[in-house]
Design a protein around this nucleic acid. Sequence first.
DNA 1: CTTAATCATAGTTAAAGCCTATCAATTAAT
DNA 2: ATTAATTGATAGGCTTTAACTATGATTAAG
Lengths: 299, 299
Amino acid sequence: MIKLRDLEYLTAIDKHKHFGKAAQSCFVSQPTLSGQLMKLEEQLGLQLVERHRRNVMLTPAGDQLVEEARKVLQAAGQFESCAKALLDPFAGDLHLGLIPTLAPYLLPHIMADLNTTLPNINFFLHENQTKVLLQQLDEGKLDVLILPYLVEMEKFESYQLFDEPLMLATPKSHRLANKKSLSLADLQDEKILTLADGHCLKDQAMGYCFSAGAKEDISFQATSLETLRHMVASGMGITLLPALAAQGNLASDTIHYGKFQAPVPIRGISLVIRPNYSRMQCVRAIVASVRKSLSDIIS
Amino acid sequence: MIKLRDLEYLTAIDKHKHFGKAAQSCFVSQPTLSGQLMKLEEQLGLQLVERHRRNVMLTPAGDQLVEEARKVLQAAGQFESCAKALLDPFAGDLHLGLIPTLAPYLLPHIMADLNTTLPNINFFLHENQTKVLLQQLDEGKLDVLILPYLVEMEKFESYQLFDEPLMLATPKSHRLANKKSLSLADLQDEKILTLADGHCLKDQAMGYCFSAGAKEDISFQATSLETLRHMVASGMGITLLPALAAQGNLASDTIHYGKFQAPVPIRGISLVIRPNYSRMQCVRAIVASVRKSLSDIIS
DNA sequence: CTTAATCATAGTTAAAGCCTATCAATTAAT
DNA sequence: ATTAATTGATAGGCTTTAACTATGATTAAG
């Protein structure tokens, strides 16, 4: 295998037409350059340089190969400068995965600061259900997930970002809408509207509801939080909504969002990465930025 | 300095996503590849590979650098295949220098066989006076000269090709035109037309003439053999012409070309190269070809 | 719980690259 | 003409490094 150093020696000889000077320009001794060049010639099986006492010149073969050598060295230089540019840990593309019940309500609160804090990171946003996101994270298609933490993620590395309370969304006219102090126990025997299977919010919300003695309304399953919200607004039932979704879009005339007393049902939003993920500095910056952005909103 | 082998390891990892298989494809042991790759990462200061037990993947930086690495390796491959192509000693460009009093009369006799014998050599022909040719040979602008040998060429390497007799060119009406047996002594007291200074033929021809007791006609100097020939044809005098020039273009009605008896004046045509010239096999083939071509013509 | 797979580590060896010192050949100068 | 300087090649020794084998640690799967 050709060595890049040898190509440097060759181009140096071409430039200086003088072994001593060429060696100096390569910061090696003259015998070193002389020897390496001879080895290269032997390896290629052809003479590259005509040696004369007073006068060194390249053979036609040497001339052609110097051209090729320059191309190789240029490519190598590009490799190195590319590596140098990549050295900035706070630059490059970053694929962020979020779940549908979080993305549209969270992103408006965090992207501004993320883009300010990490101006050289290009964020690509991917919205998918937890299972898909984990798969893609594992495959390397995604770099970072932001979603509710589940035990099945223990093989990954995760950072707690914030706890998002779940609120009770009811029609204004509902008996629970005007209750002074609301607790999970109040849900007993209520029928709860839910999202479709696959949304982790459904499992979490229904977990709380079941333990409170409420039941799932199996007559309909919403495919998104917004349809769910519309169903509540049109009086078809009540449901648990994440605080960010409740806060953002009030639909205030028709829906009442009730805060629970302690113990408040929550979902713990975490940032998840592969263990050994290469851009930890970047991850830490994201964690800090999101926590900061959320500290003002979740009180 | 980056090493090409490391780039191969990197691309192999990208291809196989598996250290063992990648190592196998590079014909090294897995620890070797593992270690070299780690060194490369350390050297660049950035992580290229995410290592997991079950799953190896490139970091975004690694992904980009694999692209660069491929370009470098491709350039290196081109270098090597170019060297391979140059391995054929009977291929490539060859710059041949000749003097004006020889080129137009010799080339028609030798080029056909040269092109047949060395089909992959591209001959570039350069016509100049001896002094210029020697300078250009020394500078490497020319590879091979074909010209009359002079002692000042002893620092070069030379191969005798053939002896070209000099003939006496006279008008048909000249007293020497019809002489049965012609010798140099017959030139005594004749005035000889000559070429301009700088043409080595002038010096050689006049050397013979002077020692025979002839004189130079200083009233005019021809800039080429053809003008010289025309001057003879128009009766302005006599001159010595090289046999090849006499043979080719007879101008037979008006000029008589006389052969000298022994000692025949000649110029010894040699092939001259730099000592240590790299393409000796090619040179030997040229020498053989020219000698063969000329053996039929100079008898 | 054990087995297999996979990447990292440790220790060793062989080769390669580099250095200093010196030689040989040539040119330039006294 | 002899000496001094230049220049590329050679010799011998040192250091680095790339390679190997053997082994360890961790995880996934049977």
